[in-house]
Simulated assay, not measured.
Amino acid sequence: MRTRLPLPLACLLVPVLLMVATGCGISTTAPEKAGAPASGIQRPGTTADHARLYFVGPYGLRATTRPTDRPLGPQQALDLLLEGPTDAERERGLISEVPPMNGRLTATATADTVDIYLPVNIKELQVAAVSQLACTAAHSDVSGDEPPTAVDIRFHENLGHSPTPWTVRCDADGNVHPRTDT
């Protein structure tokens, strides 16, 4: 005696058998262009300098690196930051919260301290802008062997005409915290 499959089960079985018979549905294709070749690995015997700049992304502060011809001090790194994100960085959703300022922002450094002289009051800046400035300065080529998380960033308002600077540090996650023990 021969058993017949119920009609609903047979209707489900036919498409499954057709899919198995035709494969997974991926047709053969020619190679596709996928963009620029891989980069980032140094050739042996070469040195690569870079600047680490901090911009604001969809999920908070984000570090980005740019190749340079030499290590950059805090002033050069901050000047690069003030130019804003490149087209490629903007495509990744990065922006700058540092506003245009009337006057020149300047920075000087010692072994474990960067002094940033702002032409404005710090309260005029967004928290993200302060973080961008502090973390970019902390990750510049500050002389000494201190890690960026141990570098004090002192903000002087109105180009140093305020009596006490605001001292902060940038942590490993790119967050800025006031330095209260100075």
Rank of each mutant, 00 (worst) to 15 (best):
K33W: 11
K33I: 15
G35V: 14
A36Q: 14
P37I: 00
P37M: 02
A38H: 07
Q42C: 11
Q42I: 15
P44F: 08
T46F: 01
H50T: 15
L53T: 15
F55A: 05
V56N: 04
L61P: 00
T65C: 00
T65M: 01
T65Y: 02
D69H: 09
D69I: 11
L72C: 06
G73F: 08
G73Y: 09
G73P: 04
P74Q: 07
Q75E: 14
Q76F: 05
A77R: 00
D79L: 00
E83N: 12
P85Y: 06
T86V: 10
T86Y: 08
A88D: 07
A88S: 10
E89Y: 07
L94G: 00
S96T: 15
E97A: 13
E97G: 03
P99H: 11
P100I: 14
N102M: 13
A107E: 05
A109W: 08
T110P: 00
A111D: 11
A111T: 13
D112A: 10
T113R: 13
V114G: 01
V114L: 01
D115I: 02
Y117W: 06
E124K: 12
E124H: 09
Q126R: 15
A128Q: 14
S131H: 04
L133K: 14
L133Y: 08
T136I: 13
A138Q: 07
D141N: 12
P148E: 01
T149Y: 00
V151Y: 01
I153K: 00
H156K: 03
E157D: 10
E157I: 02
L159I: 03
